[in-house]
Structures are given as structure tokens and as C-alpha cells.
Design a protein around this nucleic acid. Structure first.
Lengths: 131, 131
DNA sequence: CTAACTGTTATAATATATATATAACAGTTA
DNA sequence: TAACTGTTATATATATATTATAACAGTTAG
């Protein structure tokens, strides 16, 4: 797997795991139907406990990014991904709000902020083409 | 004060406090030189412990948003605010990255994402005019 | 059938983060 | 002197994060 964790980070491991897998989906390294490692093998692979992996999987399952079949194991949701509904947008705004407060306070203008966002979007586009 | 806390939120109180004060700066409700309540009075005002307030103040002091004079008390930094330097931009990108991964995975396009950011920026502009 | 795997659940232990309570210290101010 | 300031220290309670083991029910490969 392509999972890269920072065990020194203040960000909990299971959160980092969620991010990495969603990032894999965004970059199309992980496509609908693709299998994911079992909780035990992924845990052993990256040197953490299986419960930490399971915690990340449970969130991704609840959000609809992955499916967990008792027999077939864990797969990227073959029926597509959760939609950007109003509940999601509301939560996104809540996350963006303090970031934008901070940016404004530091004198970072709207244009600069949007440019930074665009740059990140573009990075996903080019990386998504290669794989 | 205009501080509004959500004690039910998973977000730690001292983080919410940081956000609220930075938001006050962004909205120009708090301007350079303006005094802030003492740790004890603010804590009593919003019904929390003085150490929780102090934790938020210490962060804001370290970042340069406020000054703490042993005698003059706490004031919004009269000499301006921290700059949007490269270290800050790097940290901002780290915060935005997982948000954008998630957005892309859910099919929220760049235009929609940027529009949401713009809307938030505009809210600060109009609120900043009134006070 | 057995052995090895699957996700799931349970229990326990440990470490860290968060929040509160209380107290004291050194300094300033009314 | 009394009341305030930020700061520091100690203790406690709670929640979260992480690991360690173990077991269960089901599936699958040999």
C-alpha cells in the first residue's frame, strides 16, 4: 500500500488513515471495486494495531466510501461515493471558516487563498492522470 | 464579549476560544490595541476554568495575535498581526489537503469548492463593514 | 475436515489530552 | 492594605488514542 503515516504528528493515526484512503480515492489510485487489505494485514504492514485500522475502516464504511462484506472482505464502494449533500457542505463550511478567519487576520487575501486551493485541485488532476 | 462556545462539540474549548478571537480579529470587532478580558474574568464570564482561557491566550500570544503585558494585561497586538509566511502557507495547505481530497471524492468540483470559500470571504467583508 | 483466513466483539492496560479545582507567587494598581 | 494581574504548581477526573489478547462465527484453500 501507499499509506504513509507520521507517528510524530498530533493527528491521530486513525484520522491519518482515513485521509490517506480518501486521498487515494481522490487520486483514483483506489477505484470502485478495488480491494483493501484486511485490518490485520494492513495493521501488520504499517506496524500498528488492528483496532486502529478497524476504527478508520468503520468511519469509511459509515460514510459510504468502502463496503465490508463478511466474506468478500473490504472493497472500495463499487456503487459510487457519498454525495456532496447539504449536510456535508455545512460541515465543510465549518471546517473552512476558522481557516479563512486565520487567513484574513494574517492579511492573506481571497485571491491568494483561492489560488492555493486551485493549486491543490490541480495537483489531484495531474496525479490522477498518471495513476 | 461575543464569545459563543459549544460545550457539546468535540472541538476542545480552548481551540474554540482561539477560533472565536481570531474570528473577532478577522471581522474587525477586535482591533490592534483593543483590550481583552483577564483570564479570570473571561473564564468566569463564560463559565469555564481560567486555565482553559490561559491555554488559548498562550497560543494566541505565541502566534503574535495578542500581547500580554505583566502590568497592562492582555491586548490585541498593536503592531499588527503575524504574516502569511511560507511556514503558515505550508500549514494551511496541510489543513486544506484532506478537505479537498474529500470534496473531490464526493464529486464536488473545484468551481463549487471555490465558490463556497468565496461566500465565506464575502461574509467577513460585509460583517466587517458594520462592525 | 482441518487450517488459515475474514470482520467483529469484548476486555484490559497504558498513555496522552482535556478540563477543572485550588493554591500560591510576584508584580501592579487603586 | 486590598484587589487585581499573569504565571506556575499540584492534583484530580474524564475522554480519547493506542496497544495487547482473546474469542466467536463465518469463509475459503489445501
Amino acid at each position: 500500500m501507499f499509506i504513509q503515516l507520521d507517528l510524530e504528528s498530533a493527528e491521530p493515526i486513525y484520522i491519518q488513515l482515513q485521509h490517506q484512503i480518501i486521498e487515494g480515492i481522490a487520486k483514483k489510485k483506489l477505484q470502485p471495486g478495488d480491494p483493501l487489505p484486511s485490518v490485520r494485514s494492513l495493521a501488520a504492514d504499517i506496524g500498528i494495531n488492528l483496532h486502529t485500522v478497524n476504527k478508520a475502516y468503520q468511519y469509511l464504511k459509515q460514510e459510504g466510501f468502502i463496503l465490508i462484506h463478511r466474506q468478500k472482505g473490504v472493497v472500495i464502494n463499487p456503487d459510487g461515493f457519498p454525495k456532496a449533500d447539504e449536510a456535508y457542505k455545512k460541515q465543510l463550511k465549518s471546517s473552512l471558516h476558522p481557516l479563512i478567519s486565520n487567513a484574513i487576520s494574517r492579511g492573506l487575501g481571497e485571491d491568494d487563498f483561492l489560488r492555493i486551493c486551485s493549486d491543490i485541485f490541480n495537483k489531484f488532476k495531474v496525479e490522477g492522470e498518471n495513476g
